[in-house]
Simulated scan of single mutants.
Amino acid sequence: MAGEIELIHTTQAAAAGGHYAQAVLHQGVLYVSGQLPVRADGNHSVDQPFEVQAAIALDNLMAILDAAGQSPSDLLKVTVYVAGIEHWPAFDRIYARYLGEHRPARAVVPVPALHHGYLIEIEALAGSEGTS
């Protein structure tokens, strides 16, 4: 594989819960692993309403972007898994607050269940010309 692979890790987002990195940077593209709404200190939020869970998952994503020297405006593609499509409107409102005018490609995928009983998981691709 051409180019170096850099593993991205920050204590400002939930630690990886298995054999994977929070994110991987390769040839200027940041591949962010699925972010569940686990707080950076490791506390779970599975008992919280969807809106709280969505904000925590997005906070994790933003912290990982920052650790990689990127920002929300560098997001290229976001995939969101929600346990129940009825959460789509709430997610869209929260997501818009985080991203402002930036509109990366996105998919919202309804699923029957997520790990630990969470209601949302977010993965993303990001890149910027200044990143190598």
Rank of each mutant, 00 (worst) to 15 (best):
I5E: 15
L7Y: 10
H9D: 00
T11A: 12
Q12Y: 02
A13I: 10
A13M: 10
A14Y: 05
A16M: 05
H19D: 15
A21S: 14
A21F: 01
Q22V: 06
V24H: 02
R39P: 00
A40I: 04
G42L: 09
G42K: 08
H44L: 15
S45D: 10
S45Q: 07
D47Q: 12
Q48D: 05
P49E: 09
F50G: 07
F50H: 08
Q53I: 02
I56N: 06
A57S: 14
L58V: 04
L61R: 02
G69R: 06
S73N: 12
L75M: 09
L75S: 07
L76W: 03
L76R: 09
T79F: 06
V80L: 06
A83G: 00
G84Q: 09
E86Q: 15
W88I: 15
P89G: 13
D92S: 14
Y95A: 09
A96K: 15
A96S: 15
E101V: 13
P104A: 04
A105E: 13
P110S: 15
P112L: 04
A113Y: 02
L114H: 05
L114Y: 01
L114S: 09
H115Q: 15
H115D: 14
Y118P: 01
I120S: 07
E123V: 12
A124W: 02
L125C: 03
L125W: 09
A126Y: 01
G130Q: 03
G130I: 03
T131K: 11
S132K: 09
S132H: 13
